[in-house]
Nucleic acid binder design. Structure first.
Lengths: 231, 231
DNA sequence: AAGTGGTCTAGACCACGCG
DNA sequence: GCGTGGTCTAGACCACTTT
């Protein structure tokens, strides 16, 4: 475990334990250095992590303050967690519509930079607290994810992938608003031409290799999103 | 000018000048240290900045590589502005529907944490390359932005605010998908009940004080969005 | 084993904010 | 002007990747 990560985790726990809210001030750097018994740079780096996560903001010459917006049921679009980790309080389930090992469709070859021979194609309906959340069509390289079955796909595929020891790095997401087709509408239990947000995303390993591409169509009444921007 | 910012800017310019694309490798750290005549830590910090902006990714023990997805006309929801060159191509204009100095509406008091006596209310239709992009209703604290007029509102209010020397810090954004009301539809030149993405956002100064709250309703055919997540 | 990036430290100095 | 956070450095050591 990295020292600054450890310190960041402890600080976050402390903030929650102390019940700090928007605008509350953290101890000064020298106190934090003493408390966690690390050098100034490590504290600075830990604070930078928390700032990036949107938990605090820092003002030079003044102090470090807590940032805590209301999050409710909003899906955080920045966490690379495929939202399962984010929604701890909520129950995420999925109904698997189909799961096959196939040769990659033409457009997948583009997303995977040509470097792909075989993929798992998974189509699911995902539920948040028993409400229909979204329709998802995803493709995983079998060279990275060698095995998948329906039982795994009923839970969080990303959690499963992480448990395999696969290190997920960064992602690109493209958002569009559309009118639902008849088929999509039926699956989401909405009328035809109802509005929907689609998010098309490519996930990369920490090595920079693309391994997952998916297109998700969200139920416009049950899905709300949140983005925290930092400086 | 901060050293690591300066180095980051120069590196970005170099990447563009060299025409590097996805997966291309940057020189090793020792070479970068020599080239920019700074210490290792400064190079590391500059690279961290570029990584956060989604321009590169780093692999321990291997190297630093360029990350360059296709951005087209997508609006970047994080403010990373990727490659500065990509943003220059487009023309942003606005038609001002109304601009008034008023007492803050009830819900604004909540967004501004009660700390507000008077606001500018601005309603605009914004255009991207002469296409209708969105409908925007925004509120600025007059204690922070003491003056606004129609001419300023026809351009970028944020650029104007920055030119006043006001330091914009972070923001919270909430996204929802809706069906357009008759009134909204007319302004966006779309049929009633057409789909739309709304983004409700609060902007804060670097001091942590909220100074702007706005609700934007995007034209579902003309607006596309992009998010780059990093590790 | 060699090479390359990542972490961590102590300490000097800088820049902002507040009284 | 004092206190606080931010930058920057040199160097030791660690961890991962490549050969």
């Amino acid at each position: 475990m990295l020292k600054y990560d450890e310190v960041a985790t402890k600080m976050e726990a402390q903030i929650i334990a102390d019940g700090l809210t928007q605008g509350d001030k953290l101890p000064k750097l020298t106190e934090l250095m003493a408390k966690y018994a690390v050098s100034k740079s490590t504290i600075v780096k830990a604070l930078a992590k928390l700032e990036q996560r949107g938990l605090i903001y820092q003002i030079q010459g003044s102090g470090v303050f807590v940032r805590r917006p209301k999050l409710d049921e909003h899906i955080n679009l920045i966490n690379n967690n495929g939202f399962t980790a984010d929604m701890v309080k909520h129950k995420m389930t999925a109904k698997v519509l189909s799961l096959k090992k196939i040769a990659p469709p033409k457009d997948m070859i583009k997303y995977f930079n040509g470097d792909v021979k075989e993929v798992y194609e998974v189509k699911r309906i995902r539920y948040l607290d028993d409400q229909i959340l979204c329709l998802e069509e995803s493709y995983f390289k079998t060279s990275v994810v060698p095995f998948l079955n329906e039982q795994i796909a009923q839970g969080s595929i990303f959690n499963y992938v992480r448990e395999l020891g696969i290190a997920i790095g960064f992602s690109d997401k493209y958002l569009n608003v559309i009118e639902l087709s008849k088929k999509e509408a039926k699956l989401l239990e909405l009328p035809e031409k109802a509005p929907a947000l689609t998010i098309e995303e490519t996930y990369y390993l920490t090595s920079g290799e693309a391994f997952d591409h998916s297109k998700t169509t969200y139920h416009f009444k049950n899905a709300k999103f949140f983005i925290q921007s930092t400086t």
